[in-house]
Design a protein around this nucleic acid. Sequence first.
DNA 1: ACATTGATCTAACGTTTGTTAGATTGTATT
DNA 2: AATACAATCTAACAAACGTTAGATCAATGT
Lengths: 224, 224
Amino acid sequence: MRAMRSRKPDARQVKDLLYEQVARIGKASSSPKRLELIELLCQGEKTVDTLAREAAISMKLASAHLRELRSANLVATERRGKNVLYRLAGGEVAGFWVAIRSLAEDRLVELRMALAQITDAPRELTPTDRDALIRRARRGEVVVLDVRPAAEYAAAHLPYAQSMPMEELKARLSELPRDRAIVAYCRGPYCLMARDAVALLRQRGFHAEHLAEGVAEWGMAPVR
Amino acid sequence: MRAMRSRKPDARQVKDLLYEQVARIGKASSSPKRLELIELLCQGEKTVDTLAREAAISMKLASAHLRELRSANLVATERRGKNVLYRLAGGEVAGFWVAIRSLAEDRLVELRMALAQITDAPRELTPTDRDALIRRARRGEVVVLDVRPAAEYAAAHLPYAQSMPMEELKARLSELPRDRAIVAYCRGPYCLMARDAVALLRQRGFHAEHLAEGVAEWGMAPVR
DNA sequence: ACATTGATCTAACGTTTGTTAGATTGTATT
DNA sequence: AATACAATCTAACAAACGTTAGATCAATGT
């Protein structure tokens, strides 16, 4: 009798197990640096020290955080020569990053206030403009600039975008048109590169606009 | 000069602040019991000791967890007489619960295995059946049973569903048809009430099926 | 005014984290 | 083989967290 019971475990036990598993995802997303690493990995696969440098932390700490992300199965690794490449374990992870960020923006006033500090423009290009932007870009009415590092552009980019990494921008201004609008984007709303690019371009007399979204928000984040 | 600088703070500082805010949501979702409380609140507003009882924890602990959820602005409170009512702070929270759970199911094998323990049926009713279910229910071809407590039914329920709380089910079997299919649902995939209801109904010779989704999954969770 | 009930606050404990330093592993280069 | 580099593992610390018990507070009913 007792042996039979043990095959069908207690309801409370199973329930606790279920919530515990979901909490592993929550735990993985409970650290600012881990979230930043996820966002970076939304841009494409990267080595540990690239991630460490871009997130402004030590490699040891990055390794520890990545270990935590891996234990929640949010990222996967692959050794390539001397380096270990990290990437998102699935496209759903990028979607989750966008979802949790969006919930945070809905619920936390402090976040909206912090965002306002870096967003001077009262109105930026928004999701509703997506189709229109693609159409205009296809027709060549607007130039879409991807100002992230070239490797990230190679991993994935918005339709009709051209690569123009931030570091090269100043030197390659002559390639850009002065008679058409330029739309710059980077890693997403929390990345400052595109904002800086727009500031520079406007200062030099270009018609530049900022698109806050990146590949993760457009559902184009690479997985492998 | 220094005063000017302080108006536009360092980029790293602002970025860190942004991720920190998002991490508040992650932290709130990093505890199994907090997630369970969120799911319960997806069913409607509840008092602290109702929540404590249903989550099988002490009221003190429930209060502490709810405090944490409130500090992340995921839930809101309102005093009504002797009791304090908790509810979701917004519909996005229910959406997030579904999203994080779905990511966990995608990424964590352990979760799928735990789920399999309580799901004997290889194939249950799925999201794709939604429209069909509504149509059949409207025509009266199928009876949709909400087996949650009456208060939760009152707060929100699936279209064309009728309330039949688990505790009353056995006594009210005569109200149910034997010539038509009966579809039972409860709080969601991690809730066992509907499964138990289906088991009982089948045993008594009814044509019963289980719908794993609840109001949160259908986007109908009440907010106030 | 007093007791009762529901809920929170405070303090305390053991446990788990974040972070860093030091030693170690694995891979490529010479 | 020896060296250099990328990354991880181990150990250790302080800080933060989960949980419980005891005291407190707020509303209700008598």
